[in-house]
């Protein structure tokens, strides 16, 4: 069965200016992500994992090459809704409760407030965090906050989930637990999950592993 790819990247590269020096974060990457993909992007720190995910999620624009989302639409249509993002650091809005953070992508998708609240509460309950719904991010532990971020990424039932080292700042048991939550929650076979990590255990639980080093992507 042929699927229209979610992400189709051709020779995409990204360079940054650091002072007067040009840094090539990603060199001519060519890859595709199709529904149901579970890909681990592994590589050392600074190898370009985050850059690759940012380009795939439409958070950044390549300086060379191209990237399109045939099954998801234009770049502007990716978020909120089609793409869910989990960042490496805690990325909850500090002045909103866990529940409000989770319902935010739904509200941004113009969902009615009551419906958004129900769905968000469901998402929190699914990951066993219903009891901390009214807590502010500063009142949560690092693991709880990251699980709320996962719930937020999943709340709008995205087709593509991009997780940029979601367990990078957590201890091993907490990281494993969070990853369990991530894998258990999105359930749908159509959803693609791409996780940037340098944890071999987590990478081992994915179907595909892409290696990246010095900005060069290697798909085995």
């Amino acid at each position: 069965m042929m699927y229209e790819p979610y992400v189709d990247m051709k020779n995409a590269g990204r360079t940054y200016l650091q002072g007067k020096t040009t840094v090539e974060a990603l060199e001519s990457a060519t890859c595709q992500v199709v529904p149901g993909d579970r890909i681990a992007v592994v590589g050392p720190s600074g190898s370009g994992k985050s850059t690759l995910l940012h380009l795939m999620g439409g958070l950044d624009t390549p300086t060379k090459g191209s990237i399109i989302w045939p099954a998801l639409g234009r770049k502007e249509d990716l978020r909120p809704g089609n793409v869910g993002f989990v960042f490496q650091t805690v990325s909850l809005i500090s002045s909103l409760t866990a529940l409000e953070n989770v319902e935010l992508p739904l509200l941004l998708s113009l969902e009615k407030p009551a419906k958004a609240r129900t769905a968000a509460l469901g998402a929190l309950n699914n990951i066993g965090l219903g009891h901390i719904a009214d807590k502010l991010p500063e009142e949560l532990s690092g693991g709880q906050a990251q699980r709320v971020a996962v719930a937020r990424a999943l709340s709008s039932r995205p087709k593509l989930i991009l997780a940029d080292e979601p367990t990078g700042q957590l201890d091993h048991p907490t990281a494993q637990h969070l990853f369990d939550v991530l894998l258990d929650s999105f359930g749908s076979l159509d959803t693609a999950l791409i996780v940037a990590t340098h944890d071999p255990v987590i990478a081992g639980r994915m179907n595909t592993v892409w290696h990246i080093e010095h900005g060069r992507l290697e798909i085995r």
Binding site: P80, V83, S91, I93, S94, L104, P105, L108, S109
Partner: peptide, 18 residues
């Protein structure tokens, strides 16, 4: 001071009006 919050909102896909 709250630029991070606004950046997160942008990352979540908030439109300009939102």
């Amino acid at each position: 001071e709250r630029r991070r919050n606004f950046a997160i909102l942008d990352a979540l896909g908030a439109k300009s009006s939102q």
